[in-house]
């Protein structure tokens, strides 16, 4: 669904991405892994246009993104650090994003809605009701994460881009979210998810992108990596690779 070609990005002296080319296949859950500073967040932000790459191309369904904001109708984003405007309430921020996306949809009626014609919500697992009137300023980190998740799912986008979605969530919420992801996977949604909790990823993902130091160290099926390293568990497989790299 998404093809990234030779993406490069430098922040000052730091080269975050050094010519990254990856695929995010449709209908699968792709995991984006790598140590801190390997460029995961940067890559995700480039997909969304939050970060402007220095060179390289991002294609959506074969067509270049071109900086066209309407392409973002295809993507729902959950950022790693939830930062929301302090003065708004939860209900207001949900409304804001919904109105803005609705207006975009009116201009681009052929944009897909996922699932078909149904408003998407996480209300089942993250009830928003009592939160709607509360100002974002005073909310805890975990609550803000939930708001972030809600925003991403409500987008109705066929591709979900989730940057460390379970970080900051308590174990119950975390498992609820994973279950929901599994459900969505079963219905054929495309997801790009990055996380440090490799055990979760093992359950969820089929496709794996391993970034190391701004480059693609491995891209392919998750099973393939396990086979390659001879480890049954993703954590161990990755640990082995890291040790080899350090040596």
């Amino acid at each position: 669904m998404i093809q990234v070609e030779q993406l490069a990005k430098r922040f000052g002296h730091v080269e975050a991405l050094k010519g990254v080319s990856v695929n995010v296949p449709r209908g699968q859950v792709s995991a984006l892994i790598g140590p801190n500073g390997s460029g995961k967040t940067t890559l995700m932000k480039c997909l969304l246009g939050l970060v402007r790459p220095d060179s390289g191309l991002v294609r959506l369904e074969g067509l270049p993104m071109d900086g066209d904001p309407l392409r973002r109708l295809w993507m729902g984003y959950m950022p790693q650090v939830p930062h929301y405007p302090d003065n708004l309430s939860v209900g207001e921020v949900l409304d804001l994003v919904a109105s803005v996306r609705l207006a975009a949809r009116l201009r681009c009626p052929h944009a897909p809605h996922w699932p078909q014609d149904e408003p998407e919500t996480l209300d089942g697992i993250f009830p928003m009701g009592e939160l709607l009137g509360r100002r974002l300023r005073g909310l805890s980190g975990g609550t803000l994460q939930r708001v972030g998740a809600e925003l991403a799912w409500r987008s109705g986008a066929p591709l979900l881009v989730l940057d460390e979605p379970t970080a900051g969530l308590d174990p119950v919420a975390s498992s609820h979210l994973k279950d929901r992801l599994l459900e969505d996977r079963a219905r054929g949604r495309t997801v790009l998810i990055s996380s440090h909790v490799l055990s979760d990823l093992q359950e969820l993902a089929e496709h794996l992108i391993f970034l190391l130091d701004g480059r693609v160290h491995y891209e392919g099926s998750l099973a393939g990596l396990l086979e390659q390293t001879g480890e049954p568990r993703l954590e161990r497989a990755v640990a082995r690779i890291m040790r080899q790299e350090a040596a």
């Binding site: 969304l48 246009g49 939050l50 904001p69 309407l70 392409r71 973002r72 109708l73 993507m75 984003y77 950022p79 930062h83 929301y84 405007p85 302090d86 921020v93 994003v97 803005v100 996306r101 975009a104 681009c108």
Partner: peptide
């Protein structure tokens, strides 16, 4: 407003 900007720029705006 960086937060608001980040939120908005992730949307099709």
């Amino acid at each position: 407003a960086r937060r608001f900007i980040g939120l908005m720029l992730a949307q099709p705006v």
